[in-house]
């Protein structure tokens, strides 16, 4: 009884994925490219870094990286608190 449901769900999910993949734009031709053009034009002057990706991650979107670091820190706190030896 369970197996046909799983197969049906899988087919449904895969069909949606394929439809989305067919509908995708070709690589390198975004629908709107104003943002990309701005970063490529101005990143070296404003953020002073040759790597545009790094200048976005650490300068334009610095808050996002701070959140990422906090998430990792919280994950470590959770793991250290969880995997400890307890006396019986």
């Amino acid at each position: 009884m369970k197996k046909p449901i799983f197969i049906l769900a899988f087919i449904f999910f895969a069909a949606f994925m394929f439809m989305a993949a067919i509908d995708m734009r070709p690589f390198g031709e975004p629908a709107r490219s104003e943002m990309d053009d701005y970063f490529i034009e101005n990143a070296q002057v404003q953020a002073s870094s040759n790597n545009v990706v790094t200048s976005i991650v650490f300068d334009y979107r610095g808050f996002d990286t701070l959140g990422e670091g906090t998430v990792l820190f919280t994950a470590v706190i959770g793991i250290v608190a969880l995997f400890r030896e307890v006396a019986k």
Partner: peptide, 15 residues
Amino acid sequence: TSGTIALMNIAVGLE
């Protein structure tokens, strides 16, 4: 070059 970006890279790398 690149000021705080390099410093932040090192800090995040250590973390």
